[in-house]
Design a binder for these strands. Structure first.
Length: 449
RNA sequence: CGGGGCGUAGCUCAGCCUGGUAGAGCGCUUGCUUUGGGAGCAAGAAGUCGUGAGUUCGAAUCCCACCGCCCCGACCA
């Protein structure tokens, strides 16, 4: 992409409504624009990041055996009356009426709808286990939206819903998502820690929040230091192997880890000195087993091996991609702006033409641009006639992982400069060598976890 | 929903107290000079002063109502 033909409205000043750093940087870097309280437009640069998040979420959901579908944003109130939640949900639910005065709502979640789809089409135990997921916009009319897309009213959500014959099967389904989440967050370049969460009316130990650590995180979290060093489950994990999967989950839940709401001071202080971690965290995922809470009232049943009807056991599993983008910015930025991990970067390379209009610079940049793209890298070529300083500042702000700097001085001796955004390290080398080096650097960092 | 604050140019803000019909910096346009970390000079475009209703000869400024946005609290992915 050529910057001169792109749409990237960066701001020099910090808009006053933004309080936390991720919100400030997302506005300044031209990722999002607020349209109303808690409602944001995703500008091209932000959309590219969001799409990368979504792609990784999909890969890992699919790998774990979940099947994608897409349910609508607008739902019928009647569906929610079946589960009793239409009355119970409260003012967070945005209720609307269509021209025929039918009661509708903008979905805050999809348990009812997916259960309705399931019961219509699935009649036999042989179809289980089943996990259906979708990526869809949701609306929760928060009393007080804040922190930009970290806590917005409209937000994108990946939610998966599992269906099993019994509690044991549901636990296996739960474990699949548990492992998929560890892999997903690792690929975002984030260290996530599963923490025991409130299980509500069902009880048991089958609910976890996935927390990532960030100095500016919303909540206080406590954990054992060794949890941070647990290995991410590999990409060739066999998700059908219930025993091994359980062992992985057991390991990840073996050490103390809790948010401030669930904090047990005694258990925390029982951790050996030097291994206690007290930090700030952001919740980026939540998985939940809720048994027959919806299948019972909504009569989601299959015929069992013995011919008798069985009410299915369900679980739901959420990741908020829009929130993840903000969380990554919180976890990865410096005084100059965002620092994207390669897997989520809107472009992998910033190709900076320090003197647009100069024949040698233009030609070298065009050549490098095409060669990098041919090598499969995504490149944002700054071909504008801004001054060098302004270009550097903008590119640092939007945080592309690598900058390839081409100027008339270096070109005289056939050299260009590579700067790594994260470290600020700069290396000067011949054009062809820089090309090879960049391809190496980017491909080495593309796949994490 | 309780408490607090703010709405003036694309962005950050001054002007309001003490009414006289709107400004600065950045950004944008044009020209010249510059050109390796947010350049300089000159000229220029750009605002129903959130909305409505009052007071007044006259309202960005004073009064009232409403709307929007932000922060703290309760609530949540």
């Amino acid at each position: 992409m050529r910057l001169s033909r792109f749409f990237m409205p960066v701001l020099r000043d910090t808009p006053k409504e933004a309080e936390i750093i991720s919100h400030q940087l997302m506005l300044r870097a031209g990722l999002i624009k607020q349209e109303s309280a808690g409602i944001y437009a995703w500008l091209p640069l932000g959309l590219r990041v969001l799409q990368k998040v979504n792609a990784i979420v999909r890969e890992e959901q699919n790998r774990a055996g979940a099947v994608e579908l897409l349910m609508p944003t607008i739902q019928s109130a009647d569906l929610w009356r079946e589960s009793g939640r239409y009355e119970a949900y409260g003012k967070e639910m945005l209720r609307i009426e269509d021209r025929h005065e039918r009661e509708m709502l903008f979905g805050p979640t999809n348990e009812e709808m997916v259960t309705e789809i399931f019961r219509t089409h699935v009649k036999s135990y042989r179809s289980l286990p089943l996990n259906l997921y979708h990526l869809q916009w949701k609306f929760r009319d928060e009393v007080r939206p804040r922190f930009g897309v970290m806590r917005s009213r409209e937000f994108l959500m990946k939610d998966a819903y599992s269906f099993d014959l019994d509690a044991a099967g549901a636990r296996h389904s739960y474990n699949k998502m548990f492992v998929a989440y560890l892999r997903t967050f690792a690929r975002f370049g984030l260290k996530s820690i599963p923490m025991q969460a409130d299980t509500g009316p069902i009880g048991g130990d089958l609910s976890h929040e996935f927390i990532i650590l960030a100095d500016t995180g919303e909540s206080e979290v406590f954990c054992h230091k060794d949890t941070l060093d647990f290995a991410t489950p590999p990409s060739n994990t066999n998700f059908d192997d219930a025993v091994t999967l359980q062992a992985t989950v057991d390991k990840w839940t073996s050490l103390y880890a809790a948010t401030s709401e669930k904090h047990d001071v005694a258990a925390y202080e029982a951790i050996e000195a030097g291994k206690r971690v007290s930090a700030r965290g952001i919740e980026v995922g939540h998985i939940f087993y809720f048994g027959t809470k919806y299948s019972e009232p909504m009569k989601a049943q299959v015929q069992g091996p013995d011919g008798k009807p069985v009410t299915v056991h369900m679980g739901s599993y959420g990741i908020g991609p829009t929130r993840v983008v903000a969380a990554v910015v919180e976890a990865s930025h410096d005084a100059n702006g965002i620092v994207w991990p390669v897997p989520l970067a809107p472009f992998e390379v910033a190709l900076i033409n320090l003197k647009s209009g100069d024949k040698d610079c233009d030609q070298a940049c065009n050549d490098l641009y095409h060669k990098l793209e041919q090598a499969g890298l995504s490149v944002l070529l700054d071909d504008t006639d801004e001054r060098a300083g302004a270009k550097f500042a903008s590119m640092d702000l939007i945080g592309l992982p690598f900058q390839l700097i081409v100027g008339p001085k270096g070109l005289k001796s056939g050299e260009v400069e590579i700067k790594e955004r994260k470290t600020g390290e700069r290396v000067t080398m011949p054009v062809e060598a820089a090309l090879r080096r960049l391809v190496e650097l980017v491909s080495a960092r593309r796949f994490m976890g």
